[in-house]
């Protein structure tokens, strides 16, 4: 049973790490805007393909 002392302490420490990660993310402002990042990730980066299309005919 004494292994539980070690295991539970280790688990709590790990949980504490996640709590600190959460605190860090809040202080960073990651929860201030919950809409834009979700939209931003869906934008296609069209410039690169468009500009390659334009340069191809010249070649």
């Amino acid at each position: 049973m004494s292994v539980l002392f070690v295991l539970i302490s280790a688990c709590l420490l790990m949980a504490l790490v996640f709590l600190l990660a959460f605190v860090w993310s809040v202080k960073q402002g990651q929860y201030d805007d919950d809409y834009t990042p979700a939209v931003r990730i869906l934008f296609d980066d069209t410039t690169r393909s468009d500009s390659s299309n334009k340069t191809n005919p010249e070649q």
């Binding site: 605190v23 809040v26 402002g29």
Partner: peptide, 24 residues
């Protein structure tokens, strides 16, 4: 800075403690 930030932190800490105390 929005006052909600401090609520997020307080809730996060309370939730952390609540979950672990429940478990124990």
């Amino acid at each position: 800075s929005s006052s909600n930030r401090s609520y997020y932190l307080k809730i996060g800490v309370a939730f952390f403690a609540f979950g672990n105390i429940m478990l124990l």
